[in-house]
Design a protein around this nucleic acid. Structure first.
Lengths: 342, 342
DNA sequence: GTGAAAGCGCTAACAA
DNA sequence: TTGTTAGCGCTTTCAC
């Protein structure tokens, strides 16, 4: 059995109060008792139980992280950053992959509440309802990252998605493209919507008209992106450039292009979003819009810890400007189907 | 404040025992009381506190997962699999990335113990000492995945690394390569050692001699792999094929090749290990040794849960046969430096 | 400087 | 069928 505070107290011939005080560095204890007790703790290999501590109201030192999918490198990198910084603050993190599924979200949030996590970080695109109904009333500290919930007042750290969409489209336009497709995740995700808006704005600012045919939606799996992009490539007059709203989708687009006998970037340019490791290693390396993932992770957790331990009330909204990272997947149009009409 | 079992009892006009029994479906309770209490619970939005429950000895329903790095897709995919299956069993998982650093390992294990996790899954290559000294005596249920600790008696699920190394080398040999380099992670990782052994065995079985020049070590970062591989490519008589002991390293090798003006697979063949998403999307797609990641994750957690809830004592050692997945990064040697000597 | 005792929210004998 | 009571391991007044 794990030794308890009683064991230590007995061995040291003091009361549990004394031991507790020494553990927490509170009250005044003679240097000798201190030494003696410390020694016994060492000897017994005593570690205070955090669950007992938690029960007395000191918190569990645990936070929940809700993401869509840990297998998506963007979220894995984000989770890693959150985990690291969390540990630095003495918090561990429970990661829950929701697959952007409302039901799972609900279950996970309930479970995290039962476990009495001290706070939650939400990176899933959905669940606004759940958050509003389950989390806000319970007074659970929360922070949003890489996702926006317009109706919710909470600390938020995200990239300017509109600017990102604008950047991506502008890059393509400046290369000379006029037939620019956009592949987004479902539009109930605010970030998708914003990226689309940015793209449309860029088009408009350059006197290009937006065609609904050039917008497709997909969930964020590579295969799905590939499938959707294929629909374009099977028909004449397809886009000469495609902006995909995340790297995974962009990879799918490139695969579809390859399958259709098109070269990237000669025949079709592709730009992604996120700047995950995938962008660096894909074939060709992917031009993409970079989110400073690590930085964002650090920021949310710093803030969340602040509200947990210092009871910070003020909610900020941190919007970071994304950057265009040009690699090899974009180039000027080659003139393939140059006579095509938009 | 969150409602407690007392609130429910008071509102329902019963004792807390009754409420507790209803929560746990124990003892016999009249259908009416049951209904009444359930209704109150609903109304109060009552959720039993798992930390209080844990304190009574029912476990925390939490397990710890120790991996080297969550940002490495292999471990992200593994973690996702563990997480999913864990949730199915009603367990949540705390992930700790150790960077294969002994000190961190120690700290994380101590923290997990303080949090009274019900068990731990270890996927880090190091920490055998810590495991032996901290974990085994404490009687904490543990399971090893994708890593071996020869001195430790614990449930283990892993791929036959020796066979994997053998497969990789044989594939290269059969393509006609004779100058085959191997880039491994540090050899204190048993898996690296085994993969190297498999490679050497394959060489021997085909009357090829092993040259120490053709073995390099690196940690598992892409850049490091690239750096190491560059050393080969800067000199004449470099390998015409390289087996890297994980996909990340293999990517690094391909990047180094490209930088050196070599084409993959025409000038140099590369095979990786793990078959992560990286292998599918790299340029060119990577021939690699596949570990059934999802399956392995499911298996460990199934077992661990079994020892936690059913007190299963028997320790198995599940060794899975890896498979060669041929993609585009390997081909017959082209004759570049064909006169080079081994 | 040190300790007795109450309490955190829950479970599990044991009574009634 | 329901309730009383004693813990689980710790923190925290409040006395001594």
């Amino acid at each position: 059995m794990k030794p308890t505070i009683y064991d230590v107290a007995r061995e040291a011939g003091v009361s549990i109060t004394t031991v507790s005080k020494i553990i927490n560095g509170k009250g005044r204890i003679s240097i000798e008792t201190q030494k003696k007790v410390l020694h016994i703790m060492e000897q017994l290999n005593y570690q205070p139980s955090l669950v007992a501590t938690a029960l007395t109201g000191k918190g569990t030192r645990t936070i929940g992280l809700l993401i869509p999918d840990l297998a998506n490198p963007f979220f894995a990198e984000l989770a890693r950053s959150v985990e690291d910084r969390g540990h630095e603050h003495g918090f561990s993190v429970i990661i829950c992959s929701s697959d952007n599924n409302e039901e799972k979200m609900k279950r996970y949030i309930a479970m995290l509440q039962q476990k009495c996590v001290d706070g939650m970080i939400i990176a899933t695109g959905i669940g606004e309802q759940v958050v509003e109904q389950q989390l806000l009333p319970s007074n659970m500290p929360i922070a949003l990252i890489a996702r926006d919930m317009p109706g919710i007042s909470a600390q938020t750290v995200l990239v300017d998605d509109f600017a990102g969409g604008y950047l991506a489209a502008t890059h393509l336009i400046e290369l000379g493209h006029t037939r620019i497709g956009i592949l987004t995740e479902p539009l109930h995700l605010v970030s998708s919507l914003e990226r689309l808006r940015g793209y449309r704005q860029a088009l408009a600012d350059h006197q290009l008209s937006f065609s609904a045919d050039f917008h497709k939606q997909s969930d964020s799996r590579i295969e799905k992106g590939k499938e959707k992009a294929s629909e374009w490539f099977q028909r004449p007059g397809s886009p000469t450039a495609i902006f995909a709203s995340n790297d995974l989708l962009a990879i799918g687009v490139m695969q579809a292009a390859r399958d259709a006998g098109l070269r990237v970037p000669e025949d079709v340019s592709v730009v992604g979003f996120d700047n995950t490791i995938l962008a660096e290693i894909s074939d060709p390396p992917l031009t993409t819009i970079a989110q400073p993932i690590e930085h964002m992770g650090h920021q949310v957790i710093d803030y969340l810890v602040q509200v947990i331990v210092e009871d910070e009330k003020e909610k900020q909204r941190v919007v970071i400007q994304p950057e265009l990272v040009v690699r090899k997947s974009t180039a000027a149009p080659s003139g393939r189907e140059g006579s095509g009409c938009i």
